[in-house]
Design a protein around this nucleic acid. Structure first.
Lengths: 134, 134
DNA sequence: CTGAATCCGAGTCGATACTG
DNA sequence: CAGTATCGACTCGGATTCAG
């Protein structure tokens, strides 16, 4: 999603449904905002790995099969910019860069694990539903 | 020229409205697979609304400000195909179609609310981090 | 009322090659 | 080692128009 406002008349958390909400000014939904970040192709995987221990760039590159340097950089930069990951550069030769979760990033692990558990428990149901005719 | 496909290749492979939205290769990771579905622009919102009560097509269209009929149909079809939403057609004149969560869909509400709560609690931190000079 | 068909821009992601 | 640069393929989602 682009950063467009979703113009919502209802949000995920409580709030009775106001019948005609006149305001066109509705703030961007925090939930979708967060979900969008976590849900691109590599983010979840990287957060999970970094939840175990800090990793260096090439360690991640090896650990995540199939990711290109470009996407690894991009994803890490986004996580860093969102305050979920810290990037520490050691001015050695050759250079070494270490990535680790911030406390904010760590705090995300638990909510994600709840959803992850649901996904694991129900994934076969979903796959089965998809293969159903109709 | 912009990246428009030309001729044969396009007509063979470009389906404007593929009915189950292509899953890509995400089925290998249940968690990412589920997250990808929930995180497109409208899904979360629709699940939330349908978590309250069943809705008819135009009710949803009115409740979700800014959604086009095309995206509403597409999103609902995907949810239906994943087994999260049921679609019931009443052969009245004019026709009426009702959408409601399946039990599977209902079971997703709780995990989502956990993540939603985290998002609400920490969204300002994230926004602040984004605005921090690098 | 409930959609389907078509067109198109913008964003996402991968492959490859190159650099300090 | 830790990235950048460039290109192209594919997908998402909006707008508009039409139909049962």
């Amino acid at each position: 999603m682009t950063t467009r406002n979703t113009g919502v008349r209802a949000s995920l958390h409580h709030h009775p449904l106001p019948n005609p909400v006149p305001t066109g000014e509705y703030e961007h939904c925090p939930v979708t905002d967060v979900l969008r970040r976590v849900t691109d192709k590599w983010t979840l995987l990287l957060i999970t790995l970094l939840g175990r221990r800090p990793y260096r760039f090439n360690e991640l590159h090896r650990a995540v099969e199939g990711i290109s340097p470009r996407m690894l950089t991009r994803t890490l930069r986004t996580l860093e910019s969102d305050g979920l990951v810290d990037r520490e550069v050691f001015p050695t030769v050759p250079p070494s860069v270490e990535y680790r979760l911030t406390p904010l990033g760590v705090s995300l692990l638990e909510p994600l694990s709840v959803l992850a558990e649901w996904a694991v428990d129900h994934h076969t149901e979903i796959v089965a539903a998809r293969q159903r005719p109709s």
